[in-house]
Design a protein around this nucleic acid. Sequence first.
DNA 1: CTAGAACTTGGAGTGCACTCCAGGTCAAAC
DNA 2: GTTTGACCTGGAGTGCACTCCAAGTTCTAG
Lengths: 138, 138
Amino acid sequence: MNSEDAFSQQPEPLTIARMAERTGLSADTLRYYEKAGLIEPIGRSAGNQRRYAVTDVDWVEFLLRLRTTGMSIVYMQRFARLRAVGDATVADRLALLREHRSELDERIRTLRENADALDRKIDHYERLLSPQQETDHA
Amino acid sequence: MNSEDAFSQQPEPLTIARMAERTGLSADTLRYYEKAGLIEPIGRSAGNQRRYAVTDVDWVEFLLRLRTTGMSIVYMQRFARLRAVGDATVADRLALLREHRSELDERIRTLRENADALDRKIDHYERLLSPQQETDHA
DNA sequence: CTAGAACTTGGAGTGCACTCCAGGTCAAAC
DNA sequence: GTTTGACCTGGAGTGCACTCCAAGTTCTAG
C-alpha cells in the first residue's frame, strides 16, 4: 500500500508470512528451503527476523516451476549453488536446464501415451455399460 | 510363444520372479501390492509359493499406468476394491477413471505451461551467453 | 509499558511408496 | 541326504519433502 523510499534500493521487504502468502509455500517450507540452500541466506531485521526482498519472489517462483515439473531438491540445490557462484556458471545452468527440459518432454510424452491407454479403458467401460445408458451427463 | 493346453485354463503360471521380470516391479513390490489389496490374493503352489496367472500381468500393467499418471495407492486400492466386487461396480469404476483422466489432463496442461516458462528461461540464458557462442550443439 | 501475535531455532514426527532383512520353508541338483 | 537357491512371513528401515513442536525472542497495537 505504499511505494519504496528514495535512499534505499529495497522497495519493501516482506516478512516470512507475507512471503508465504505470495509464493504459496508455508513459512516452514521457506525456512526449510533456505536451510537446504535452495534460497540464499535471507537478510534479517534488527531483531533477527527474515526480511525477503521482492526479487526473492521471482526466484522462489522459478523453484516452484522446477518442482512442479518434477525436479528433485537435490537438483535444485545444484542449480542454486551454481547461481550463487555467479555469472561464470551460466553455461552450466543452461546445460542443467536443458537437460531438465528434455526430461520434461519425455515425461509429458509418457503421460500422453498413458492418457490414451486410459481413454481406451474408459471406452471399454462405457461399452460395458450397455449402448445407451447414461449414468452421467459428462 | 506357445498356446494354452486343452484341459486347464491356466496357460502357465508365473513365479514371482518371472512376474517381476514381466512387469518391471520387484518381487517385494509385488508382495506389497498384494498385501495392500491392489492385487487380489494370488494362487499358491503346493509349497505355498505364489503362481501368477498370465492375466495378472494385464492388471499390474494397468496399475502401473495409473501409478505413472500420478494416482496414489489409496485411489488404486479404491479401484481394486470395486473391481473385486464385480460387474455391479462398473459405473463406479468408470467414474473413478474419468475423474483421474481429467486430473491427468490438468496435470499435462500445467506441465506444458511450465515447460513454456522454462523455454523462456533457457532463451534468456542463451542470450546471456553472448550472441554466437556455441557451448553445446543441441 | 504490556499483551498478544509473529517470529526464531533445533530437532522430532509424518506420509508415502517402497526396500531390506532375519529366520524359516520348500524344491531340485548333486 | 545335504547343499543351493528361490521363495515365504512379519516387521524394521529408507529417502523424500515437508510439517510440527517447544521454548524462547521480537514486533506491534493500545
